[in-house]
């Protein structure tokens, strides 16, 4: 009788141990899954934030650049005009494209300017076209 009880006690101990191991395993799996699920949105948020910072920097740099005043020469006369006007002028007369490129090289640093992109600042040139300009990292 005592032997039987001892056997039963040992069986119960094994049963409890196995139960505990299963519960521990379940918790570990849950923690792993949670970590993986937490990681994905974090990465997505980081990606969105980085993209947003880049876009915002491009936007601010473009706005500042467009309003910058430069001195150009027209028919041997010096004239102060903004980059926005120089861009418009370069569309009227291709001679000014070279001056615009030089100005961009001088003041845009890490950026290049590009025309005809979906996003960017727009200009109106009557009877001609709408120009869209944006900055892009070199």
């Amino acid at each position: 009788m005592e032997i039987k009880n001892k056997k039963a006690q040992a069986g119960e101990l094994v049963q409890d141990t196995v139960g505990l191991v299963i519960v521990a395993l379940l918790l570990i799996i849950f923690i792993i899954i949670s970590t993986v699920l937490w990681g994905a949105p974090k990465k997505e948020i980081e990606k969105i934030a980085t993209e947003q910072i880049t876009k915002d920097q491009e936007h601010l740099s473009l706005q500042a650049w467009l309003q910058k005043t430069v001195e150009i020469e027209i028919e041997e006369e010096k004239q102060d005009i903004t980059i926005a006007e120089l861009i418009r002028l370069s569309k009227i007369n291709p001679i000014y494209e070279e001056i615009l490129n030089q100005e961009a090289e001088k003041s845009l640093g890490i950026y290049n300017y590009e025309f005809n992109k979906q996003a960017g600042s727009l200009f109106y040139i009557p009877s001609d076209e709408i120009i869209t300009i944006r900055l892009e990292i070199k």
Binding site: I48, Q52, K55, D56, H59, G120, S121, L122
Partner: peptide
């Protein structure tokens, strides 16, 4: 929070572009 910040920056930039235009 992220979407709200992103969207409000985008819409502010749109306002800047419009104001410039």
């Amino acid at each position: 929070g992220v979407i709200k910040t992103t969207a409000s920056i985008n819409i502010k930039n749109m306002g800047d572009r419009l104001s410039f235009y």
